[in-house]
Amino acid sequence: MAGGASGAGSGVVFGIALVLLIQQFGYLDFSSNLVNALVYIIIFAVVFGIIFGVIGRALKGRAMRKFEAATSSSSGTPPSVP
C-alpha cells in the first residue's frame, strides 16, 4: 500500500517533469493555449502516476516478501551446539 502511494507520487512528478521537458525540446506548444497545456500535464501526471504506482507496489511487495523470508529463516534456525 505504502509502496503504491509512494510510486504514484513519484510518477505524478515524473509525468509533469517529462511533459515539460518534451515542451522544452520543441515537440509540444505550451505558449498560447493554457487549457491545452494543462490537459497535457494532467494526462501525463495521471498516466505516469498509475504506472509508477503499480511498479512501486510490486517492488515494495517483493522487497517485503524477501525481508520476511530472510527474517523468518534466520530466526527459525537454532544455533549449532557442539
Partner: peptide, 18 residues
C-alpha cells in the same frame, strides 16, 4: 527537469530495496 526525472526514478527504485 532531467535531475527531477532521475530523482523520481531513483525514488521508485529505492522502494524495492529494503
Amino acid at each position: 527537469l532531467i535531475l527531477l526525472l532521475i530523482l523520481e526514478v531513483y525514488e521508485v527504485a529505492a522502494l524495492g530495496r529494503m
